[in-house]
Design a protein around this nucleic acid. Structure first.
Lengths: 161, 161
DNA sequence: TATTGTTATACTCTATAACTATA
DNA sequence: TATAGTTATAGAGTATAACAATA
């Protein structure tokens, strides 16, 4: 694909200059790669990673509060508000003032929202598993295990290897 | 910190509902975590991860083209143009029309830019290593090895584990 | 006084497309 | 015709701060 081997620089091996040994840099690149290969089925439905993840978390945790959702997804609370308002406008999410703490807002999926998530989750799971990478299935499991530990995510159901 | 153990939902264990076994989701969370903990020394200097990485790559690969830089950093070419123009305005980068292919622009650091990178790179390296995570040093090496392989990054100098 | 969520603004980066100048 | 880069616009998500309501 590259045939121009003449320039003082264009032909040389490009170097990452130490960035290849920084975990932050590698994680950023991996993230860009993941976004680039995000599900071609979900994108046309207006679903970006943050959106489908939020709906899945609400599906899984009915009554979750704004702040809890933001923390689990590592989204800013201010942005979470916008996200949820748009879900509400779409008719997928219902907001309810908490009775214990009347400052808090609890989130629930509408029947339409729940049906949508139930239909889309297998699509997401499939597209995540199908995303091309240089890793074997076993290495992918290992990567996920390390990332969960990196994040301090306590997940009992995680595969041991 | 949480004493409200009464709600139908607030007290229950929150579940990731399968997201914890999707590599794309875990990588996204890790990326958010990395950005959150980006060097407190570099940020006040107007350096975000993409910016300092770009400068390092130009430092390491004088004469690199716009497109090559965008590809290595997985940035969009359109955004790379803006980035480089702002570096040029800062006096850190010099742009030069390639002699072999007069469509291409080659990038070089000015002496000021080179001095800045040389001063900041140890800061970046240090802050990357110091970022708190749930991993041991050895696991971090393993994570980086897996990420490089995930990305198809061919790096001879990488630690073997 | 501190906390939950809302609103608003500026900024970073993506997605897309139209454009130029070269090849 | 295709490629390297530029410009512009819309959108996603961050950073920050001021604000209202409640604890």
């Amino acid at each position: 694909m590259q045939e121009n081997l003449k320039s003082d620089a264009t032909c040389e091996e490009r170097s990452y200059g130490g960035l290849e040994n920084m975990s932050g840099f590698l994680i950023s690149l991996a993230q860009a790669y993941v976004f680039e290969h995000f599900s071609e089925e979900l994108t046309p439905k207006g679903m970006r990673p943050a959106q489908i993840s939020a709906l899945i978390l609400i599906r899984e945790n009915p009554g979750i509060r704004h702040g809890e959702l933001a923390e689990m997804l590592k989204l800013k609370l201010a942005y979470t508000t916008k996200l949820i308002k748009s879900f509400e406008a779409d008719g997928w999410v219902r907001r309810e003032q908490s009775e214990e703490d009347r400052r808090a807002i609890q989130l629930y999926l509408t029947p339409e929202g729940a049906a949508f998530v139930d239909a889309m989750k297998p699509v997401l799971t499939e597209s995540d598993a199908a995303r091309p990478s240089g890793l074997t299935a076993r290495e992918t499991q290992q990567l996920m295990r390390l990332l969960r530990k990196y994040l301090g995510m306590d997940v009992p159901g995680a595969t041991a290897d």
